[in-house]
Amino acid sequence: MVKNFIYFLLFVLAVIATAELIGIQSFTIGSMTISMLPLVFAIAIAMLLGLPYLRKGILKKIYSKKNVEFASKYLIFIMLPLMARYGSDVAPQIKEILQVGWVFIIQEIGNLGTVLIGLPIAILIGLRREAIGATLGIGREGELAYISEKYTLESPEGRGVISLYVIGTLFGTMFFSIFAPVLLDFGIRVEALAMASGVGSGSMMSAASATLVARVPEMESTILAYASASQLLTSFIGTFTMVFLAAPLQQFMYKFFVRGDKK
């Protein structure tokens, strides 16, 4: 048992070292610059080597049941120093943040984008009640709890939210890490993108803001301060936005689209 855990520790160090030695890789497609940070390589390597049919020999010991359980149980604690770091990013800029405080609140409404953009697409490609679960939010714990309370997780709505949860867990950070700076090339200001990064998942916010920092390093302190302030705000009022805005809007749009569909 202890031996497996030592393998786990060494493996984590090896993955960190590999990811850091690969470093930041940027490439351009047309006018878009795509940057990949060590964190993307880290999660990709750790996930790929954990594929069930690769788990033989040493990998089987590293990805033992106990070790994977340890990783998922304590992931949140491994993340805490990052959250503590954000305090030091926000503190020096607290005045500026409070000055544009209302902008932070306004952009929270942007979290309705999951319904506004996601729901029509979902219905267009033929999803029905699953779409309710899959587009209410970005499918984190908050939505999971709400949907399970209202529809249970065995319902189509429940399947929708669970699927989104799984996809978000596996690919969310990679998606935001790559997608966030792409919008820079569409002329959106880095401050706005930093604010938008507070999507409601700590790791997705970190991935989005980290890539923004890599692209605009001279704005590092502002980016991290705005992103984490917005994230904090989302954790406070995100539930309200979901229950009082996203859910009613979704019901309204769902009825509208599905009725139009039958004609």
Binding site: V103, I138, L164, F175, G198
Partner: peptide, 22 residues
Amino acid sequence: KIAIVAVFVFAGTYICSALLAQ
């Protein structure tokens, strides 16, 4: 299908928030 929706859900919240912030 949900994988496709996920892309639009993630992009949707990010783009809408970014535009409002802008």
